[in-house]
């Protein structure tokens, strides 16, 4: 019985972690948790063309 609880807790923790990563990937962040991520992060999406 207790084993089951632990398994559920583990699944919840891991599930949350995966969900958070998926959410960030969808909003375009390359580095998870990078604070300057919202808009044209320092993380590369498309390199700009150089003159």
């Amino acid at each position: 019985m207790e084993n089951l609880i632990v398994i559920v807790i583990l699944l919840v923790i891991i599930g949350c972690a995966i969900a958070k990563i998926a959410k960030e990937k969808r909003s375009g962040a390359k580095c998870i948790g990078c604070p300057h991520t919202k808009n044209g992060c320092h993380c590369p999406s498309k390199p700009t063309k150089k003159p």
């Binding site: 923790i13 891991i14 949350c16 972690a17 995966i18 958070k20 990563i21 998870i32 948790g33």
Partner: peptide, 8 residues
Amino acid sequence: KAGTIILL
């Protein structure tokens, strides 16, 4: 980062 990538 610790709670997601590192945890996984």
